[in-house]
């Protein structure tokens, strides 16, 4: 079985990206009142990271060896 460590790392990026960025986003919004796609910056950041998070996790899902293994088990 291939190592899952890279997949865990990708998941960690998907997990931490949103909360860590909040600190900067809020500071920028306080200073400059930025709106992106109609939303205040902080809200845009949250939506952006849902989409990025899902994208990263879809990649993880594709590479996840567990899926293949289960398929094998099911067909055996």
């Amino acid at each position: 079985m291939k190592s899952k460590v890279p997949l865990y790392l990708l998941s960690l990026i998907a997990y931490l990206g949103m909360p860590l960025g909040v600190i900067w986003m809020n500071r920028i919004f306080e200073e400059r009142h930025v709106f992106v796609l109609g939303m205040p910056l902080l809200l845009f950041w949250m939506v952006l990271w849902i989409l990025l998070g899902v994208g990263i996790m879809l990649l993880v899902h594709r590479l996840n060896p567990d899926n293949l293994e289960e398929e094998k088990e099911a067909t055996e």
Binding site: S11, Y15, M18, P19, L43, V47, W49, G53, V54, M57
Partner: peptide
């Protein structure tokens, strides 16, 4: 209120 737009729980759920 924006903290409600989150997916961190689902990443934990995935594993």
């Amino acid at each position: 209120a924006f903290y409600n737009i989150t997916m961190l729980n689902f990443i934990i759920g995935y594993w």
